[in-house]
């Protein structure tokens, strides 16, 4: 495995800062933010999604390498399946009274 990508740690540092920011933001929202629970959960979920993207882009190298197309397609497909099954299950299980 030849490393052909750039070796500068800048990329990683940016990712590190982003992930720290998002983590502490989530912590602050949970502990200190003077907002109702529903809004709090919504914000945490949104922050989690950003965290997910940061991890993939900066540390998992989703956009690099020979097979990035496959990785991205596979990932999108995975998200589609996850959303379909989770949202679908909630829909089905909560509204099953005739």
């Amino acid at each position: 495995m030849e490393q052909t990508q750039h070796h500068s740690p800048k990329h990683h540092i940016i990712g590190f800062i982003w992930s720290l920011l998002l983590t502490f933001a989530a912590l602050w929202v949970t502990l200190k933010a003077p907002i109702p629970v529903g809004l709090r959960l919504t914000i945490i979920v949104i922050l989690a999604i950003f965290q997910f993207v940061v991890q993939l882009v900066y540390f998992m190298h989703i956009s690099e390498g020979d097979s990035k197309v496959f990785q991205i397609i596979n990932l999108l497909y995975g998200i589609f399946v996850a959303v379909a099954t989770v949202a679908g299950s909630i829909w089905i299980m909560l509204y099953n009274t005739m």
């Binding site: 589609f80 399946v81 679908g88 089905i92 009274t97």
Partner: peptide, 16 residues
């Protein structure tokens, strides 16, 4: 991945 409910249409979900 989005058709599985047709195996149990009659379990009492809403019409939607």
């Amino acid at each position: 991945f989005i058709v599985w409910l047709h195996h149990f249409f009659t379990m009492g979900q809403g019409p939607w």
